[in-house]
Amino acid sequence: MTPLLEIKNACRYFGGLHAVEDFSGHVKRGERVGLIGPNGAGKTTLFNLITCFTPLSSGAVFFDDTDISSLKAYRVARLGIARTFQNLRVMPNLSVFDNVSIGALGALGHSPLAALTKRTNYANDIGRRTWDALEQTGLQDHASELAANLSYGKRKYLEIARALALSPRLLILDEPAAGLNDTETAQLAEFVLRLSGEGLSILLVEHDMNFVMSLCERVMVMASGRKIADGSPQEVSNDPVVLEAYLGSEEEAA
């Protein structure tokens, strides 16, 4: 069985800057994969390539055996790749419910006629998906609040809820634990584990190594746009190449 997500020789150049250079990797169905690397390694660019927000310079991305390299971002989302952001992208002036129903709306798509006639209330399919996602993330009591009034931690869950409303098969999390305290991070890890248990594949970037090492079954390491290691958390954390990328080589350090 082919992997759910397969990245083949992906390259992305910004002028002379090789942000992502010949990156190949995959995420299997139901797998929890971490992507780590020093700042500026190209992790977020790689996410942008996978979600087709930034076009590839060369290479290809396959999702469920479909080449998605040339699709538009919203198409990729509808195919089943949902993501959250490092700097949150919730809609601050919309209610929590509306924020999440955007995900549900995005998943269903609509004809121009339906766009004008179908209501977005609590009763129809959009409403049901929205409620499901709100309940999964424990935000149901905040449904009518403005997103801007939520705490930072809650807004993180709001973004995840919006992504879940898409009923994705792959959830991409960009630094989900950033800005959370230890208790909140542990709760988040538990939550991600639960989603994974329901069959969702997870790909995440995170700087909190404890979070990555405890949560992920496999870790890919990036440095200067290239993949330098790929393996279990144990293997990766003992890999001299990885240590060098993070800490500098021993000669330099000496």
Binding site: A82, M91, D98, A107, L116, R162
Partner: peptide, 20 residues
């Protein structure tokens, strides 16, 4: 309406809207 929700979403955050 759905188109109304889309408009409000895009007005609030176009990139976030596209990603979902």
């Amino acid at each position: 309406t759905r188109v109304g929700l889309s408009i409000r979403a895009v007005a609030n955050n176009p990139m976030g809207a596209a990603y979902v």
